[in-house]
Design a protein around this nucleic acid. Structure first.
Lengths: 128, 128
DNA sequence: TTCCTTGCAAATCGTTTGCATAATG
DNA sequence: CATTATGCAAACGATTTGCAAGGAA
């Protein structure tokens, strides 16, 4: 029942997210979209991020740092979180359907998906 | 350099968590431990939960509902989150070192572990 | 004109923290 | 006695929300 109407701000938010692979926080989105829309408010950013993730257009990630992160790649994939530099990366494993399948075999409810993140040290943080 | 000292409140918090398999929030812990220590403060509950999860005695889970959940089972396992009733369950999958292993094969950094939760509808929510 | 969206600011809410006091080792 | 833990309340920070004005259908 949404009856969504177009807005340039929302488009800019989606566009920005699609250029990034590092899963920005709402504040990051805000600071960047502000270059194009200096008057955009943080509330508008949050409203759109919430709307878009409710619609499934983007993903909302809950990591360990207390701030939500957003991801324009909605195809199932895995994430890596560096405990040192706090960066977030995509991991492209082939294996994800079998994970859900094997979980489903042992679970009476209906599994619709999963959120998985690996944690540890990223390549850069190891070498310094 | 911790130099931990005993406290009855902390013990009660751990004891309570060990009796539960539903991964209570800090507020749940607070309400229950209050039966035994009516004057305990929410701050003390948070301080101990944070301390214990930093020490690795318990796990702190970041789910979709915006509140942190705590788990006294620290052995690697999976979680299920019901998107309808918001309950959290343990899933005992044949532990998959293969998950970390296969991820590690394709990743230059060092993977130390993973947090995985499945989401969907639990058995009870399907049948109503 | 109707209803969605925005900007702004205030409100929420989970969590953390400063401080004086109590308990532990 | 030295140090850690507690209770209380205030502070914090991320996110949400009410409202009046602006923009899309």
């Amino acid at each position: 029942m949404a009856a969504l109407k177009y807005s340039r701000q929302r488009e800019a938010i989606i566009d920005f997210l699609q250029t990034r692979k590092d899963h920005p926080s709402a504040d990051m989105v805000y600071m960047n979209v502000r270059k194009e829309f200096p008057n955009i408010s943080l509330g508008t950013v949050y409203r759109n991020l919430t709307l878009l993730s409710d619609l499934g257009v983007i993903l909302r990630l809950h990591l360990e740092d207390g701030v939500d992160h957003f991801d324009a790649t909605t195809a199932p994939h895995f994430h890596f979180y560096c405990t040192q530099c706090k960066s977030v990366l995509d991991l492209d494993l082939e294996d994800s359907p079998s994970l859900v399948t094997s979980a489903q075999e042992q679970f009476a409810g209906k599994i619709q998906g999963h959120a998985t993140y690996f944690y540890g040290l990223c390549d850069q943080c190891i070498h310094k």
